[in-house]
Amino acid sequence: MLKTLRQICRTGIVTEPPPLSDDTLRVADALQSRILEVLGRALCIRAIDAGSCNGCELEIHALNNPLYNIEGLGIRFVASPRHADLLLITGPVAKNMEVALRRTYDATPDPKLVVAIGDCGCTGGIFGESYASCGRVSNVIPVDVAVPGCPPSPHQILSGILTAISKATGD
């Protein structure tokens, strides 16, 4: 126990400041401020791998590490779409995941936001569209913000999430 406490004290607080939102990542029109009022200052995210290679998952995981400390911003990953305000979706949508993804979207209460993560989520990436892949996430459900990268860094993913929940400049 002493060793654990000593390690915690030695580590200290390592959290870094978050990135700014980035309007170039927006896919859909500017958000209505009403949605922001509903969501308030706490955001619940449901992460869904719709067919990724698991590279993007590694970087989404990193958001929970003490340096990015996403929970410190009031943002939390939740276990059910019914608890979620925002869906964070990776991968080209595998056809074998299409039904599950649609049902998850339908199960998420309105108003909801969708952020597609990674080159595959944005365009279908290297896998494209095929007998087994629907390609980009927006081919299956509406997307608000798309974050490119293979995989995008935790900083870029966080910026995408913050973009989705902030008002577009000039709004």
């Binding site: 791998d49 067919g51 074998n96 995941m97 599950a100 896998f127 494209g128 095929s130 087994a132």
Partner: peptide, 11 residues
């Protein structure tokens, strides 16, 4: 399993 089958061998 097989949910994330995305046709890699065909690709």
């Amino acid at each position: 399993l097989g949910y994330v089958h995305k046709g890699i061998e065909r690709r």
